[in-house]
Design a protein around this nucleic acid. Structure first.
Lengths: 301, 301
DNA sequence: GCTTTAATTCCGGAAAAGAGATTTTTCATT
DNA sequence: AATGAAAAATCTCTTTTCCGGAATTAAAGC
């Protein structure tokens, strides 16, 4: 039983999918399958029940999940406790709205508890702007969405900027189109019966992915809103379709089960300059890595 | 950072020696050195200070030790929590006096907390008798001393009995001759200025090792005593030399620093029948493995 | 029923772990 | 000091394990 197995287990448990989990932990699905099987054999218990293509935790899996979280937290604490030079000073972190809402709360709480001497400056923004600010040393690091390959080829500037930075996948989001209640299911943008798309600012990668998807088959306008709450409210009026990751939608326990359409997985990257790596950043990096895949689920409980 | 590294770390920390630790965890010294170095590199901190041939924990090493113990305990608990069939019934465990005194308390406490439904029958005895009782199904398992190779060759019966059992090294004891205060240092039994050796019953492996050592150069009688406390008391009178492992001596915070002579390392084996493996035994086995190398030190704190 | 998607199985290459031999350092003894 | 024994570190070689890709199987959606 090593901690990487537990990381993999947590990813599968939270995504209920080996494919997604594999992306989240930067491995290949077959490897995830194998490691889970090894873990189950080692423990002598069945952690997941494979009904169909869903991976649901068994009774034992649920109890192990609690321990897995505690083990990861304890290992993280141990790691931080022996850190030779205690981080201090200021750390300037850029993040997308969505990540700040769904993924960061737990990590930030833990980080703040552990290193109260670091003053953490959080800046929200669109992925493009954030990446530029990291390059320009306005930010120390940022959490941004990686555009899919086809979009990167259309926007070589952004791609070049990313290449100049160190990057690492930390989350994988399911990007959704959220439809008004009562709207029929859709296969493509042509089936949309709304007047516009509701999204954040123009530099937002999610917005651009959605616009790319929409313009193939229809000519929708985009209405720009300031927050995901505003987007959902706008969807509720019945005449717009919202764009947001599933993790954000999950947070906003919306009264009725909403109709959604998947645009596919989008990776969230942690980017930082190749040269500099202050102590506070290493600590943040570590906390982020250890808490990933735990936040949304914990909040849901 | 995987749990096997932590197990190795705990062994080195408690033995303050990579050679001893290597034996305790069933590995080769070069491997232990490497794993410790890897762990230090991974944590980015120096865990041990190598002053000469001693491995002493650094400040960071001490703090990591606390976490290492908690991690092992938590991992053990996780393992037990998902055990499909909760152990119950009776488990008959045989043990040497010395092991019962120095190594078992922590393991038994933990086991009892975890599985209050198992009634644990503890039998003390000499290694030979214990091994026979396991073979005869009077005991489910036993902790016994493995005689050194030369002695095994003189006692083929015992050796054959051991071969018929499953066995596993769980501890490594430093076997000592304890001398009365004021006795000069000795190189061999010829230098002894006492009338007799104080030891336990004839079937005791430690006693036989000491007698073997003594008879090479001198003709000492053995006085048989019922407990290690009695042996130490007898040594205190000035006319006997006691035989006991260092871990036992450490427990009995003896007023004055006593003079000792090393007879060398002796492995403690957990033996059990090859065929049968009841649930309660697996649980005991697991607890024993996870708590090893932690007890004496914890008691000393 | 066919297509798509996801999980698993199988296999070859790569990386890491373990064991033994060798070297270096240290401690004890002369 | 010089010598010898013992222990840790280093090095090299072998073995094992791990990882990624291709093929396979099974389930869900149309």
């Amino acid at each position: 039983m090593d901690l990487s197995s537990i990381e993999i287990f947590l990813a599968v448990a939270s995504d209920r999918s080996v494919t997604k989990a594999a992306k989240a932990v930067g491995r290949v699905p077959s490897n995830v399958t194998t490691r889970i099987q090894q873990l189950e054999e080692d423990l002598g218990a069945c952690l997941f029940s494979r009904d169909g293509k869903k991976m649901t935790l068994t009774r034992e899996g649920e109890t192990f999940l609690a321990y897995a979280n505690r083990l990861m937290a304890l290992a993280l604490e141990a790691r931080q406790a022996v850190r030779p030079l205690a981080p201090s000073g200021t750390l300037r972190v850029g993040t997308m709205e969505s990540t700040a809402a769904s993924r960061l709360p737990a990590a930030l709480t833990q980080f703040n508890q552990m290193w109260p001497d670091v003053s953490l400056h959080l800046t929200m923004g669109a992925s493009r702007d954030l990446a530029r600010n990291v390059l320009a040393d306005v930010l120390d690091c940022a959490l941004i969405a990686r555009p899919p390959k086809t979009m990167r080829e259309e926007d070589l500037d952004f791609d070049a900027e990313l290449e100049a930075l160190e990057m690492e996948t930390v989350f994988v989001e399911d990007l959704l189109i959220v439809l008004p209640s009562g709207h029929p299911a859709i296969k493509s943008a042509a089936d949309l019966r709304v007047g516009s798309l509701a999204a954040l600012e123009p530099g937002c990668t999610y917005r651009r992915i959605a616009e790319n998807w929409a313009r193939k088959t229809s000519a929708l306008s985009t209405s720009e809103l300031g927050s995901y709450h505003a987007i959902l409210a706008s969807v509720a009026t019945g005449n717009t379709a919202g764009v947001m990751p599933r993790s954000v939608l999950d947070l906003m326990h919306w009264p009725t089960a909403v109709q959604t359409h998947q645009l596919g997985p989008v990776e969230t990257l942690l980017v930082y300059r190749k040269d500099d790596c202050p102590s506070a950043f290493s600590a943040f990096h570590e906390v982020l890595g250890a808490t990933k895949g735990r936040d949304v689920r914990l909040a849901a409980n």
